[in-house]
Nucleic acid binder design. Structure first.
Lengths: 205, 205
DNA sequence: CCCCCCGCTGACCGCTCGGTCGGAGGATGG
DNA sequence: CCATCCTCCGACCGAGCGGTCAGCGGGGGG
């Protein structure tokens, strides 16, 4: 029986050994590169330099590996961004900080981001999906609240808040499809430029 | 030998029988729903009410089916949008038309759009990929030219054109991840609202 | 009338997939 | 010195995959 399952049953805290961290890191890299279906358990084992059986000693199945990556990445994103909002900043500055912090997160945890963002397609286990959606909703709720605050403070004109939130998230979420590291601006700089474009608009004054 | 291959060898124009159209339509629907790897040739055959062998009578392999969908969709998108740009319109109106036309296209050919957009992950045959990338580049070049025209005409402030193009395309390309038909605004209306937000900006005057 | 082409089928192939199982081997504690 | 636990492996399994092949049956041209 896999360790994680044992711990879940016994109520023991889910700790994470070095070996598990290695497996999760290599898996994230492979998932990001080749997709979920394009990555076999054999690939993961080989990348870690271990036997395939050992994967099943640490995780119950392939889905659990992916779920751990996706959930961890989504939860960490929310906390990462929330921690970086300037307490005393103006509402627009806080929206800007939300965007640049997301850019930083994208740069720092790129494999995890891509792996967890890309492979929504076959959501196999809805139970596992659920908790992740909760964190994603918190993240989306955060940007909406920041926008609403900016509207209330009179810094933003009275826009459609959910739609504006989607506009902001779209620009950030699509970055992984064209961004190439070590080339051009950093993700945070791109996010900052996006904020400038959206905040000030394109219209010449 | 598959008919398409025969035609390619003989130089005959690639015509498309009713059966082929049916296969392409069902495949697009399945690819959009379950992804490329999540759709088997058996699934496609069953959805069409035919035997699996018949698929190989009309197409050489699974990749060719997908490539036909992806290439057709990408090429059609460019032509669809270009045809809908108002000839005498102002530069900003032409940018707006680009966005709403893309929204219309998304609504009309949703399965094909999703199928061809989502499954970049395993680009198996680069030769087949190539022509499609050409049409995608034309499409992206189109929005950049429209933006540049608006800047030159003094309607837009002097923005970073490639980045602004990516901003616009991001909002449109991400739509399929959250849009639900028969609920809320149409894609064209959403695209129009996006244009308003980006053009006028969020800042209160 | 015959023959050939064309749309079409069902049985089959080799392969890779996710996942299982019994046990090896070393450290730890009594 | 033995029992136990933990990490780890190689061999193996059934299933589903993409793709092949020999052949069926009916309609049109010689």
């Amino acid at each position: 029986m896999a360790r994680a399952a044992v711990k879940a049953v016994t109520g023991e805290a889910t700790d994470t050994s070095d070996r598990m961290l290695q497996i999760l890191a290599e898996s994230a890299r492979l998932f990001a590169t080749n997709g979920y279906d394009g990555t076999s358990m054999r690939d993961i084992a080989e990348a870690c330099g271990i036997s395939k059986s050992l994967l099943y000693h640490h995780f119950t199945d392939k889905d659990e590996i992916y779920a751990r990556i996706a959930l961890g990445s989504t939860q960490r994103l929310f906390e990462f961004v929330q921690d970086r909002l300037p307490e005393g900043g103006s509402p627009p500055d806080r929206v800007r900080a939300f965007m640049t912090a997301t850019g930083d997160y994208f740069q720092r945890y790129r494999s995890n981001w891509i792996a967890s963002t890309a492979a929504f397609w076959s959501d196999p286990e809805l139970r596992r999906h659920k908790e992740r959606v909760m964190w994603r909703d918190r993240y989306e709720g955060l940007i909406r609240r920041l926008i609403q605050d900016a509207v209330d403070a009179g810094d933003f004109r009275p826009v459609d808040v959910p739609l504006t939130g989607r506009l902001v998230l779209s620009t950030l979420n699509w970055m992984h499809r064209w961004y190439r590291p070590d080339k051009g601006m950093t993700p945070a700089q791109i996010a900052d430029s996006y904020f400038d474009l959206i905040f000030n608009g394109l219209k010449a004054r």
